[in-house]
Design a protein around this nucleic acid. Structure first.
Lengths: 233, 233
DNA sequence: AGAAATAATATGTACGTACATATTATCTTT
DNA sequence: AAAGATAATATGTACGTACATATTATTTCT
C-alpha cells in the first residue's frame, strides 16, 4: 500500500488490521490521528474515519474524542450469533422440520415469569409448551409465556399449525430482548419429552423480549442432547 | 419527526425502525429509495444511507443494488456476544480473579486436535490445563492445545503467572475463529476439579482460532454449574 | 421465441468542507 | 496548591457532488 493508488475504506481497514496483527501497533498503543493516516495512505479523512469506526465496532480499537485512537488493550472479541427461527435452523441443517403443540392455556403467570417480564401476577397470559422436531426426532422443547395485553392477536393464531416462535417473529418482529445460554440437567418430564434420560445435560436458551418497556414474551428453549450452537469471530 | 428539524442518522435509524415496529412496513416490503427517504425526512442521502446500512447490518433490512431495500422477510436476529478475557469477565462481576496452572506439557496432539486445527499428528504442541477462580471458588476449567510452530514465543511465557488465555490474546493475534457452545455432563475428573458431582450439567465453550490458514490454538472451556452467558438483541 | 447486448437504476463509496461535541490541556483565580 | 474557567483538539457527523458497481429492465439480434 502506498500513497499513490486509490484507497477504499476496506483497504484502510485491512492495512490498519495488518499493522495490529504484525504488532507494529501493540495493544494500548496510540495510533496516528485520522488526518495523518489519511495523508499517509492517500485518501480523505472520511475514508479513514469509516475504516477506524468499523474496527472499533469490531473491538480492535478504542476511540475517544480529543484523546485519539488506541489499539484495544484488552481485546474483547465480539462474536456475532445468528438467532434464526427454529424452523430455518433445522431446515438449514438439511433436516425436515415438524412441530407439535403440546399444551396451551390462558392463565395468570407464576412469580418468576412476572419478574422476568415485569408484569403483575394478575396479567392475562398465554402459556404454551411445544416440541420442535428434526427428521421426526425431538430437537427442541419450548415452554413459553406470552402477554395477551401486549399481543392480543395471538388468540386468533392457530398454534397447532404455526409455532408461537414463528408467529411472534412475524407479528411482533424486531423487538429488543435478552438471551441467556446455560446448561441444565434434564428433569423427569423434560427427559420424557426429548426422549432421553433424566439428568442428561441439556443446552438451555432463555429468551425474554420487550416492545419498548412492556414485556411481550418469555421463553425457555431446551435443546436435545448433543446440540451445539455455533458462532464465528 | 418532520422535514424541518435537523436530522441525524440515528433519528433516521429510529424512525425506520419505528415504521417496521408498527408494521407500517412489513417483512418483505420494499421501502422507499434513499433519495425519496432523504427528501421525506429532510436530510442528505448520505445520512439515510448510513442509517439504512446500520439497520441492514443489524439484520432488519435486506439491501441490493438496483433492486432496492426491503424489510427482512425472515428475521434472523443477530445477537452480539462479547467474549472477553476470562479475568475481565470475573472482575466485571465484582469478584476476585485467581488462576492456577494445573498441567503443562510439550507433546504431539491427539487426533481430535489435529482435526480441529488442521495440523499433523507429529506437530510440536503445548498442552495446558488450568483453573480460573472467582472469589477463590472454581469458575472455569481450561484445557488448551497451542501450536508452537505458530506461536513459538509462548515457550518464554510464564504460564504460572499469566493464563494461556490472556497471553494468547495479547501476543497471538488471530484472523478468525470458531466458537461452539454446548452442554455436557461432568466427568469424574472434571467434577473433581470444579468441585461438583459427576454428571452435573456444565456449560462448554469450544474455541479454535486461526491466523490465515494456520491453526493457532484449540481450547475447551468448562464452566461451573449455574453459569449463564448473556447476550442482548 | 430465445439469447445476447445495452440501457437504466438503486445502492455503494470517495472526497472536501463545515461544524458539533466530548475530552484533555492550559490558564486564571482564589 | 486547589478549583474553576477557558482554550485546544481529535473524533463524530452532516451535506452535496461525483462516480463506481451490481443488478434489473429493455431492446436488439438471430
Amino acid at each position: 500500500m502506498n500513497s499513490l493508488e486509490q484507497q477504499s475504506w476496506q483497504s484502510v481497514h485491512d492495512e490498519v488490521l495488518r499493522r495490529i496483527h504484525t504488532r507494529e501497533w501493540k495493544p494500548g498503543d496510540l495510533i496516528p490521528k485520522e488526518v495523518e493516516l489519511a495523508e499517509q495512505l492517500g485518501c480523505a479523512r472520511a475514508t479513514v474515519n469509516r475504516a477506524l469506526r468499523e474496527l472499533a465496532s469490531e473491538g480492535f480499537l478504542d476511540r475517544r474524542r480529543k484523546a485519539g485512537t488506541r489499539v484495544a488493550a484488552h481485546p474483547v472479541r465480539r462474536a456475532k450469533l445468528d438467532i434464526p427461527v427454529i424452523r430455518l435452523e433445522i431446515e438449514g441443517r438439511g433436516q425436515k422440520y415438524a412441530y407439535a403443540l403440546l399444551f396451551s392455556e390462558r392463565r395468570t403467570p407464576p412469580p418468576e415469569i412476572c419478574a422476568n417480564l415485569g408484569v403483575t401476577a394478575e396479567s392475562d397470559m398465554l402459556h404454551i409448551t411445544s416440541l420442535h422436531l428434526a427428521d421426526g426426532k425431538p430437537f427442541m422443547f419450548e415452554d413459553r409465556w406470552v402477554s395477551i395485553a401486549a399481543t392480543p392477536t395471538i388468540l386468533d393464531a392457530d398454534l397447532e399449525k404455526i409455532s408461537a416462535n414463528e408467529w411472534l417473529v412475524l407479528h411482533a418482529p424486531y423487538t429488543r430482548g435478552d438471551i441467556y445460554f446455560s446448561a441444565v440437567n434434564a428433569s423427569e418430564a423434560e427427559a420424557k419429552v426429548l426422549r432421553t434420560e433424566p439428568g442428561t445435560s441439556l443446552f438451555l436458551m432463555e429468551r425474554t423480549t420487550w416492545e419498548n418497556q412492556t414485556g411481550i414474551t418469555s421463553a425457555r428453549l431446551l435443546f436435545v442432547p448433543g446440540y451445539r450452537k455455533h458462532s464465528a469471530i
